[in-house]
């Protein structure tokens, strides 16, 4: 079973992330599922009627605005990094937290590596499904990379210049 980082701790993964071309066919009723945006787009009604937990995932070129008024349906919003150098979803996470006030889980999936975690957490991610060949235990150290930061972030509402004594 994959283990993920959630709120700075390692936990067992309980969600299933469906592939981008997944369909409703054979879908379990009770599992907790993270579905691709396209499936939600086409079958929101059916997905809402299931008993299991519901999350959605967005690829790097999919925009959060599309579901901004439907966020209450999702316990998890997962944002995919096709490459860790693709920073688009850093902005998405920021918008989810700061603009849309989303309180559920914001999870980084895809090419997620230790050296990006510190910045990603500050953008608003609270869960990280590390690339499968990486040790989440080791990655936890990234959260201690910096003791102080200049910018405001999700866990620090004020930029340093408003906190400087």
């Amino acid at each position: 079973m994959q283990r993920i980082i959630k709120d700075g701790r390692i936990i067992d993964e309980t969600w299933h992330t469906l592939a981008k071309d997944a369909t409703l066919e054979g879908m379990s009723n009770c599992d907790d599922l993270i579905v691709p945006l396209a499936l939600w787009r086409d079958h929101a009604h059916a997905l809402k009627a299931r008993d299991g937990g519901l999350g959605v995932w967005l690829d790097a070129d999919e925009e959060i605005e599309e579901i901004a008024d439907q966020l209450e349906h999702f316990q998890v919003i997962a944002l995919n990094f096709p490459a860790f150098t693709d920073g688009r979803h850093s902005s998405t996470a920021y918008l989810l937290r700061q603009r849309y006030g989303y309180q559920g889980e914001v999870r980084a999936i895809g090419d997620v590596l230790r050296d990006q975690l510190f910045a990603l957490r500050r953008c608003g991610f609270d869960a990280f499904a590390l690339r499968e060949d990486r040790d989440p235990e080791d990655a936890l150290k990234a959260f201690d990379d910096f003791a102080e930061v200049y910018q405001a972030s999700s866990d620090q509402p004020l930029p340093l210049f408003r906190r400087r004594a």
């Binding site: 150098t85 920073g87 850093s90 902005s91 910045a119 910018q151 972030s153 210049f161």
Partner: peptide, 16 residues
């Protein structure tokens, strides 16, 4: 200098 501090390790703009 103000811009330097704002842009240093800006978490959202690390991978433009």
């Amino acid at each position: 200098e103000i811009i330097r501090q704002w842009s240093t390790f800006h978490p959202e703009f690390a991978h433009l």
